[in-house]
């Protein structure tokens, strides 16, 4: 029974997660918690702003809407999160302020799933931004709300919606295999 090709102790840091690449799994969840709050504020601002009646507002009114500005900032933070994740603001905040106050982690993870989730978050928020800009009513509320659901499930339940959706997105030809990271 010991000569079977089943590795146990070594699995943790060998096959999929090489020790040098693995990151503290609490980091992305901390970032997701902050993103959750930002998205909730963005949805609220969108609901009281120009979004419900976007077709009745001018382009400059739509672009100057606080909800649009905040959603654009969130989208840029997502871009930062999947391009240079180690220097993204929430990752730096976690490393310098939060992590020193926590005990050592037992929960290491591959950095690719959270990066992919950042990409999915960026795509969802950006669709909302573009639709809002061309005057589609409720777009900021709906797509901001969708991104909120994903971020909240990640922060509160450790469930990575974007990661779960990878094969579905490939199959629907929304993304190509291997892309974007």
């Amino acid at each position: 029974m010991t000569n079977r090709p089943v590795d146990t102790e070594t699995t943790e840091h060998s096959s999929n997660v090489s020790a040098s690449r693995a990151i503290d799994a609490r980091g992305p969840r901390f970032g997701a918690a902050i993103t959750t709050v930002l998205l909730l504020v963005a949805v609220f601002l969108a609901a009281i702003g120009t979004s419900p009646d976007a077709s009745g507002a001018t382009v400059s009114e739509r672009a100057g809407d606080p909800a649009f500005v905040l959603s654009a900032v969130i989208a840029l933070l997502f871009v930062w999160g999947f391009t240079v994740p180690t220097s993204a603001p929430w990752a730096v905040l976690f490393r310098t302020v939060v992590k020193p106050r926590l005990g050592p982690t037992r929960d290491w993870e591959d950095p690719r799933p959270p990066r992919f989730a950042q990409f999915v978050g960026f795509a969802v928020v950006t669709i909302g931004l573009v639709l809002h800009l061309v005057g589609v009513p409720w777009a900021l509320v709906v797509f901001g709300g969708a991104a909120f659901v994903a971020a909240f499930l990640n922060a509160a339940f450790g469930f990575c919606l974007g990661c779960e959706m990878y094969l579905g997105l490939v199959r629907l030809r929304v993304i190509r295999p291997g892309s974007p990271l």
Partner: peptide, 17 residues
């Protein structure tokens, strides 16, 4: 699995054990 699967490593550890 896929490389973007965040739960897969833990599931693999549970099964192999």
């Amino acid at each position: 699995t896929t490389v973007y699967c965040s739960r897969c490593p833990a599931v693999r550890r549970s099964i192999t054990s």
